[in-house]
Computed example of a mutant assay.
Amino acid sequence: METLRHIVLFIHLIGFATLFGSWAVQAFGGKKQITGLMTVGLTIAGVAGLALAAPWGLPTGASINYAKIGTKLVILLIIGALLGIGSARQKRGDSVPPVLFWGVGVLTAVNAGIAAIW
């Protein structure tokens, strides 16, 4: 069971890497727009993160930090909202506001930091 949990963690990290990597490509070499790959990465990271939040396959004596999971979930929902708002603006022909675009990257990095440090 622990092996399955590690596989889900690996998938979760792939989702984060996809979201942050596609954002970084746009931030440092692209047009600073929201891409479909960002949404795919967010979805992968979110689904795998929810699977990791379930109390299965934990080592003996380990407990789940529900405050950390809740914080990361709120940040994930905010990132999803920013991606949705940015995508809607792009479809109307408007540009994505810089605060919205940079917010996606900063919040994604904060979410990774919470996972690693907390």
Rank of each mutant, 00 (worst) to 15 (best):
A27L: 06
V110I: 12
I75N: 02
W102R: 00
A88G: 05
L13F: 15
L9T: 02
D94Y: 12
I85C: 08
T35Y: 09
G30E: 11
V25W: 14
V99C: 12
A51W: 09
T60A: 15
G105F: 09
A24C: 08
A27G: 07
V99I: 14
L13N: 01
V96H: 03
N111K: 02
M38N: 06
G80L: 03
I114R: 02
I85D: 01
S22L: 01
A62L: 10
A17M: 08
V47Y: 09
Y66S: 11
I78F: 05
L100E: 05
R5M: 06
A51Y: 13
F28Y: 15
A54R: 13
L77R: 10
I44G: 07
A116G: 09
L58W: 09
V99H: 08
G30W: 02
G49V: 03
G29E: 12
G93W: 02
G113D: 04
G15S: 10
L37V: 05
G41W: 03
W56K: 12
A109V: 15
M1Q: 05
T3P: 02
L4E: 11
T60M: 09
L19A: 04
A109S: 08
P55Q: 12
I85V: 15
A53E: 06
R5K: 14
K72V: 12
P59T: 05
N65M: 06
G103D: 03
F16H: 04
A81F: 12
I34E: 01
G105R: 07
H12T: 06
R89K: 14
V25G: 09
N111L: 12
G41N: 04
A112K: 01
T39N: 01
H12L: 09
